[in-house]
Design a protein around this nucleic acid. Structure first.
Lengths: 238, 238
DNA sequence: CCCATTCCTGACCGTATGGTCAAGGTGAGA
DNA sequence: TCTCACCTTGACCATACGGTCAGGAATGGG
């Protein structure tokens, strides 16, 4: 069999990532600004490439091209591919955790869980690449952020479970296992980012419109809130 | 900075995949059997490695070691890494679709959706590697099975949406968007495979026990079925 | 203006990887 | 037993990739 070159399944990546590189700020910059600017540029590009190709499939050259910088320059700011990847994952984790704020500020399940769904759906919409990188990292057994999972994530989850249990104990929702409820919230919301391509394909190869995103949020909130026994009056204002 | 060798984030993979290679059948085999046996051996090993490392991170050598065969032998059965990967993904897609049978055979939403959740949870439990490969493939924009998505998956989904719509029209469940309900079912059930590592970490680094899996299924069914307005009497027998 | 610090980058290197191949083994039909 | 098709595999190859480095350019404090 004549084979020119096995086309990577990632071959599409190169196409997708083509186009004009990320635009630099054209103003004359100070040293401090240059550093900030370039690190940002690299991180944004890296997030995209890691999301599309996975850690193993991503190449420093691809990231460099997308960032509009020479490859050697990446290694000036980030010593290794892994260090760069680590930074990307950590940034995402921060965003992920921030969505919890709305949860805590709430007075009850309808408001708390409703707002959390909204927040996480918004992340899926605005940061699909980040969500994919996170998913990929976890799927591969969290080689670089296992320590975060064991500390920060465990703490976060424990706290939220207590809150939900409190809502249950005070009769504001059905007695469901808070753990599985949380998993359900994560799964459902992140699905719209991680499996966005599938959803897009099933939507006639079009990204979801504003209305469709709104519809998704409403539908998810309605099913889950009703499913855990929150009185319908409490979330009629969707 | 002295650097011996940048340890891949995938470094864990090598450890995990260590241990005795998959056992060959020791009987004397006919030619036909040899082919069947070896292809099976390779596919199983490949599924594991692709799941743990992603397409880019997986190496033919790793797969070969796990299968207990020399690398050149893999290329005898599968001409390229991509061909092997393609076969793995296709097999998974078959399993994924098969779970739909229970959906169709059902007389109503309680039975149909309940059984579908059970079936998909069972897949997550028995085929976590397969589920991860599938997730990874879709996340990377389905470079090798886009055609399947556009044909088989679209057809499947359309059919199931019609069925759900019929249930709605006959007043057996609330009028929810069938599309988002399906996404929710997929997301929630597959989460237990794709994010199994996270779940395991949050479970004190232990895999879910039989009881916990049962609890998860029950909890998911309860929330969703109640959430879509299926009368509680219809799914009391969980 | 000087010079120290920081930034930039083309050219280069060692290695790991996907893939090839030629030679040798092995089962089975005639 | 012969023969042929199929299986097996160690050695090998080309290349792509992560990473290095030396030397030049820009910036900024004194």
């Amino acid at each position: 069999m004549v084979k020119v070159r096995a086309p990577h399944p990632d071959h599409t990546v190169k196409k997708i990532l083509k186009g004009p590189p990320l635009s630099k700020d054209p103003r004359p910059l100070s040293k401090k600004e240059i550093r900030q600017e370039n690190e940002k540029l690299i991180l944004v590009a890296a997030e995209k490439v890691f999301a599309e190709a996975g850690f193993g499939g991503a190449t420093m050259q691809l990231i460099a091209d997308l960032a509009g910088l020479p490859k050697a320059n990446l290694h000036y700011y980030f010593p290794t591919k892994e260090a760069l990847y680590r930074q990307v994952v950590q940034n995402i984790f921060q965003i992920w955790l921030q969505a919890a704020d709305v949860f805590d500020a709430a007075s009850g399940p309808a408001e708390g869980i409703g707002a959390y769904i909204d927040a996480k759906m918004e992340i899926s919409r605005r940061h699909p690449a980040g969500s994919k990188v996170w998913a990929s990292e976890v799927m591969h057994r969290a080689p670089v952020i296992q320590d975060y999972l064991e500390t920060t994530l465990v703490d976060w989850t424990t706290g939220r479970m207590k809150l939900i249990q409190h809502w249950i104990d005070t009769g504001r929702m059905d007695p469901v296992d808070p753990r599985h409820l949380l998993y359900m919230l994560w799964a459902t919301t992140q699905h719209y980012a991680d499996f966005g391509h599938q959803i897009e394909t099933l939507n006639g190869a079009k990204p979801l419109s504003d209305e469709q995103w709104k519809g998704a949020k409403t539908c998810i909130k309605r099913i889950i809130l009703k499913g855990i026994g929150v009185s319908e009056a409490d979330f009629a204002d969707l």
